[in-house]
Simulated assay, not measured.
Amino acid sequence: MTSDPSNTTAIRLRKPTKEDGFRLHQLVAECPPLDPNSMYCNLLQCSHFADTGVAAEKDGDLVGFISGYIPPAKPDTLFVWQVAVHEKGRGEGLAKRMLKAIVDRDACGDVTHLETTITADNEASWALFRSFARDMGAELEYHEFFEKDAHFGGQHDSEFLLRIGPFHP
């Protein structure tokens, strides 16, 4: 069965604004197993880090969001903090489109690498970043970065640092 294009609404990607902070807080809550941040943190992600974030809207709803930043000690690297895609935005390659939209921005003109952290069991994130690396013609390497016991007090699974690059948007 083919889908009826008249029943689909395009997803619009745009730079976040501080008005998205509350909606981002709600989106993350609706996307387990994502770790929630404080609403204030979400407001900062949508304002201070807007140049390295992306909001995805469909029918006026926030259906996707990526927060990221360029670490001061690594001006060639975009660190992706969190990727959230609501079920209303799934199945359309939205997460990878959002990643590419960020690295294509002027703010990422000097970015040649992308980093993020992922738990070992987060298959969707591993697939996303492996696919992104392939599309960018870049290498992907990883190692344990935040250890369950040493860094999370045994309360959270270890996180692996993925580094993708070099690439040229």
Score class of each variant (00 low, 15 high):
4 D>T: 07
4 D>F: 11
5 P>S: 12
6 S>G: 09
7 N>P: 06
8 T>M: 12
8 T>H: 12
10 A>L: 09
12 R>D: 07
12 R>Y: 08
12 R>S: 06
13 L>K: 02
13 L>I: 03
17 T>S: 15
18 K>N: 05
19 E>R: 10
19 E>P: 01
19 E>F: 09
20 D>A: 00
23 R>M: 08
24 L>Y: 01
25 H>W: 13
25 H>C: 06
25 H>F: 14
27 L>F: 04
27 L>D: 01
27 L>I: 05
27 L>G: 02
28 V>W: 03
29 A>P: 00
30 E>H: 09
30 E>K: 10
30 E>S: 05
31 C>L: 10
31 C>Q: 06
32 P>M: 09
32 P>V: 07
33 P>V: 08
33 P>Y: 07
34 L>T: 00
34 L>D: 00
34 L>I: 03
36 P>D: 12
37 N>I: 01
37 N>G: 01
38 S>H: 13
38 S>F: 10
38 S>G: 12
40 Y>F: 15
40 Y>W: 14
41 C>W: 10
42 N>L: 04
42 N>I: 04
42 N>T: 04
43 L>E: 05
46 C>H: 05
48 H>D: 13
48 H>R: 15
48 H>Y: 15
49 F>K: 08
49 F>W: 15
49 F>V: 08
51 D>G: 11
53 G>I: 01
55 A>D: 02
56 A>M: 06
56 A>V: 03
56 A>T: 02
56 A>D: 05
56 A>F: 04
57 E>N: 10
58 K>W: 10
58 K>C: 14
58 K>L: 12
59 D>G: 13
59 D>C: 14
60 G>V: 11
61 D>E: 15
61 D>N: 12
62 L>W: 01
62 L>I: 14
62 L>G: 07
63 V>Y: 01
63 V>D: 02
63 V>K: 09
63 V>G: 08
64 G>N: 08
66 I>N: 00
67 S>G: 14
67 S>W: 04
68 G>C: 11
70 I>V: 15
70 I>Y: 10
71 P>H: 13
71 P>G: 14
74 K>A: 13
74 K>L: 14
75 P>T: 14
76 D>F: 08
76 D>C: 10
78 L>C: 06
79 F>M: 06
80 V>D: 00
81 W>I: 02
81 W>N: 02
82 Q>F: 00
83 V>R: 02
84 A>T: 01
85 V>T: 08
85 V>Y: 01
87 E>T: 13
87 E>S: 15
89 G>T: 07
89 G>Q: 06
89 G>N: 09
90 R>A: 06
91 G>N: 11
91 G>D: 05
91 G>T: 07
92 E>K: 07
92 E>R: 09
94 L>N: 00
95 A>Q: 01
95 A>D: 02
97 R>S: 08
98 M>L: 03
98 M>P: 02
99 L>A: 06
100 K>T: 03
102 I>C: 02
103 V>Q: 00
104 D>K: 14
105 R>S: 12
106 D>C: 11
107 A>E: 09
